[in-house]
Design a binder for these strands. Structure first.
Lengths: 225, 225
DNA sequence: ATTCTGGAAAATTTCAAAATTTTTCCCTAT
DNA sequence: ATAGGGAAAAATTTTGAAATTTTCCAGAAT
């Protein structure tokens, strides 16, 4: 028999990022095996790989759990993401050229188009397919922001942290209503403008503003000098 | 039969961090299995876990490899480490109190003692046990530096990156001779002094100075504002 | 000489069951 | 009642082999 573990990986990742498992819920290979028509070991294998991107928690002899969600965890993920994105975009602004500006503008255009639509009629965001479009566009914009940082490790780490950030956000169900989109439209615009005008300070501030709704703690990770 | 997979994990990790495998060398479970008297799948399991800390490279259907080493990779790891450490210590300086200063002083004392000994008689560094002592002390000092940053994610990430940094360093065989220790003694001292006097700028610079021997590229990841 | 093809060899993934460990829960002793 | 013990149940890890995929190489065709 042949089972498609990439598909299992993708499906589990998707479920993890969409709060289809409760916070800290136990992920038992023997149980999930039925869902996918494969052996328990295959599920174990996939879970082990999902551990690498931080979506799954693993402890020896104690199995797997969906990542816990909590205000502390959300703070931590958000601040760390903010720090990485600020550092990454600062480098991109220094190293990126015309092609970067073009890609960034394009990514922002796709994103803002969707967000404008969602702002006009909030119902659109209820459609999972539409949300997937927005999710991809949002990721693409932020990834492009740091794409010229020149550091593969920073980029890879950012990708994992971004995924965990989304995992925490979705879990807390802070709705994606019309008001949400009308707020972030301006935030994304501010980030774009600052990036294109190579204003490091403004861009750092814009990123911080964009993310600060997601953490309550006073001190930001991007320590002021 | 019962096999001790924590021991296998530890042994493989140790070998990986001490260049006992060549850069990008293939890590075949079926071959390693004999070494440890366990099944191939157990090795696979361990390798998958080592993937999480970045010591092992994994690709679907294509198996495992020891991390590649190259000037580019070394640059990347070093700059990323420098960035994380600077951010972490900046936060620690802001949030850490008396207890932090005490721990940091203690960690530095243990470290500098060893380094002084190694400087006096370079032969000491040839003894693997002594090197292990130094390695632990060095890690402890740098970990303590960022220990009050308030961000578990930053700390965990730093730990992984530090491990990969060491992996790259050892691989390139840039000897740990007497001159090496006499150089870093002052660098560690400068970091300690700046940290204790809460001089953020000086501390960032000291960390950069400490690491800059390990990268050739002009642009540092810690982007100037 | 170079590229293409087929199939054998090697390596990786998957399976299902056995061995081990952890957890649960009921019974007993204080 | 409550804490402690211990066996049964559940979950995790490990195994050895089968199934699948990739790699390698010799021979044929261009």
């Amino acid at each position: 028999m042949k089972t498609d573990s990439p598909a299992i990986y993708a499906d589990l990742k998707n479920k993890l990022m969409n709060a289809r498992f409760g916070p800290g819920e136990k992920l038992k290979p023997a149980s999930l095996q039925g869902e996918y028509g494969c052996s328990a070991n295959t599920v174990r294998d996939v879970l082990l790989r999902l551990t690498k991107v931080g979506l799954v928690e693993f402890e020896m002899q104690r199995g797997f759990r969906a990542q816990y969600t909590s205000p502390e965890k959300r703070n931590d993920v958000t601040r760390f993401r903010s720090m990485l994105e600020q550092e990454g975009v600062t480098l991109s602004m220094k190293l990126g050229g015309i092609s970067w500006e073009a890609e960034l503008t394009a990514a922002h255009h796709r994103l803002s188009h969707l967000e404008s639509e969602f702002e006009r009629s909030g119902d659109l965001a209820d459609n999972p397919d539409n949300m997937k479009l927005w999710t991809n566009a949002e990721w693409s914009f932020h990834d492009t922001l740091i794409s010229r940082c020149g550091s593969p490790m920073l980029r890879d780490t950012y990708e994992n942290v971004y995924g965990q950030f989304r995992q925490q956000m979705v879990a807390q169900e802070s709705g994606f209503g019309r008001s949400y989109f009308s707020a972030i439209i301006h935030e994304h615009q501010a980030i774009l403008d600052a990036a294109l005008s190579r204003d490091v300070t403004a861009c750092r501030a814009a990123i911080n503003d964009h993310l600060k709704r997601n953490y309550t703690q006073a001190v930001a990770l991007e320590a002021a000098v």
